[in-house]
Every structure is written in structure tokens, then in C-alpha cells.
């Protein structure tokens, strides 16, 4: 008799537990709670959905992108505020890696390692990855940073409270606090230019056309063709940020 009672309570426990887990799984697929589906899927957006492609083989490290970005967007001139910058990677024969970015590359690069010691060397232009699942957007406590319907990550500088949480959250180091406005500032993919039908300033003034942007949903766009025809890679794919900045010929040493 006692044994049967225990069995019954175990059965009802399992039944209740099963129902709770089932209900939890079903709710987790519904819109405001669908964190699991959000993490597993790649958002595609409706209509135009901007992506960026950078060809490292074509980049000559002139620093024009960093320079024109500062001019176009009134980025403070100090050598530690950048929306777009270039890094020079040098891998030495002994395996050590040297990364340099004097003034973001604006004044040009010189090779500080003697040629005989270099295994290989290349430039990596960096900017906001305009992630589809941006960690920076997810942490904003007030809704001042957001992904636009076109997939561009923007900042509402009249609404930002300058809490710096997003600066910490961005795994690519693409945000800074504006020294006079005291709100966060970042690459807008020159949203003001895109809306007027112009290219972003860094891409307009790249002398080798090493960087392009365009609609990822359009299979005929320059970016889509770039991704289709080259071996592209994004930075830090394990973080599942949904980065939309695709690099051609990205070395594994790049962080």
C-alpha cells in the first residue's frame, strides 16, 4: 500500500514536470520570449539589409578610410576616438604577432619590423560590424541604440544616457564615449549618405575599392557576389553576434 502511494506521487511528479517543461518550450518559441530561436537563427530582415565586405588582399593601408570617416562624421581628432581604423598585423618568424595602429592609420604606416624577421604582414581595416544580433543593442537599458529596419546599428544621441554599458558589450571595440557630448558614438555606415543614395565615406574614398557595402538580400548586389565568390570570414564568429562585416583572406591571428 505504501509502495503504491509512492509510485503514484512519482508519476504525478513526472507528469507535472513534463507539462511544465513542455509549456516552457512552447512559450520560448512565442514572440516576446523567443530567446532560443533568436539565438539559433540568423535574422535576414525584410527589404534592403545592409552588409559590408572588406578585401584584405586589396587593402594597402593608406588610412584614407579612417581619415575620411573622421572628416565626414565630425569624429573628435584625438588619436583614440575612431569609428573606422586600420591595424597593421606583422607575424614574425618566431611566431610572435605585432599589431600596430598609429593614429588609426591616418598618417600612414611604416613597417617597424625589419624585412628579414617578417613571416607575413597585412592590414586589417576595422569598423562596426553592424551585427544582426548586436550585443550592444541588447544591453542598452533605455533603447537609445538599435538596429534600424535596414540592419544598420545606430545611436539615438538625444536619448542616450551615457552609461557606457554598450561600450563594454561590443566585442569589436567599435564604440567610444564622445568627449563633449558625453554620449556614445559609433559608425552609422554613413546612414545619412545611404539615405541620399551615396556610398559610405570610407568606401567612396578607398583608392583600391577594398571595401564595399550593399544589400545582402539582393543576390545580384556587389556584396552578395563578393560573399559567394570569395572565402569570407567574420570576426569572432563563436560569439554569435550575427556580424555582417565579411572579410576576404582574413588570417586566423586577427582578433
Amino acid at each position: 500500500m505504501k509502495v503504491a502511494k509512492e509510485n503514484q506521487s512519482r508519476r504525478s511528479f513526472l507528469k507535472n514536470a513534463g507539462m511544465s517543461v513542455g509549456a516552457l518550450l512552447v512559450t520560448s518559441a512565442l514572440p516576446p520570449f523567443n530567446a532560443i530561436l533568436f539565438a539559433a537563427n540568423k535574422p535576414k530582415g525584410k527589404g534592403i539589409w545592409y552588409g559590408i565586405a572588406i578585401d584584405i588582399e586589396k587593402c594597402i593601408g593608406c588610412g584614407n578610410c579612417a581619415k575620411t570617416c573622421k572628416t565626414e562624421n565630425d569624429v573628435p581628432p584625438e588619436p583614440f576616438f575612431f569609428r573606422s581604423w586600420v591595424e597593421q598585423y606583422t607575424i614574425k618568424n618566431d611566431g610572435t604577432i605585432k599589431v600596430e595602429s598609429p593614429n588609426g592609420g591616418i598618417d600612414g604606416f611604416t613597417q617597424s619590423v625589419p624585412d628579414g624577421e617578417i613571416e607575413k604582414s597585412f592590414f586589417v581595416p576595422k569598423m562596426c560590424n553592424h551585427c544582426a544580433k548586436s550585443p550592444c543593442v541588447q544591453v542598452c537599458p533605455v533603447g537609445a541604440t538599435f538596429e534600424s529596419p535596414e540592419g544598420v546599428v545606430l545611436v539615438d544621441d538625444t536619448y542616450c544616457i551615457g552609461c557606457r554599458y554598450c561600450v563594454q558589450a561590443c566585442p569589436y571595440g567599435c564604440r567610444y564615449i564622445h568627449p563633449t557630448k558625453n554620449v556614445v558614438d559609433k559608425c552609422t555606415l554613413c546612414y545619412h549618405r545611404l539615405k541620399k543614395g551615396l556610398n559610405p565615406a570610407c568606401m567612396e574614398n578607398c583608392p583600391t575599392k577594398a571595401r564595399i557595402s550593399g544589400d545582402l538580400n539582393d543576390p545580384e548586389s556587389e556584396v552578395s557576389k563578393f560573399i559567394k565568390t570569395k572565402n569570407v570570414y567574420v570576426l569572432k564568429p563563436h560569439l554569435n553576434t550575427g556580424s555582417k562585416l565579411y572579410y576576404n583572406a582574413l588570417n586566423q591571428e586577427v582578433r
Partner: peptide, 9 residues
């Protein structure tokens, strides 16, 4: 500069 590709420039 070693970092520049000879093909590119």
C-alpha cells in the same frame, strides 16, 4: 611595406 601586397600597388 611588407604588409602591402605587391599585386595590389
Amino acid at each position: 611595406n611588407k604588409a602591402r601586397s605587391e599585386k595590389a600597388i
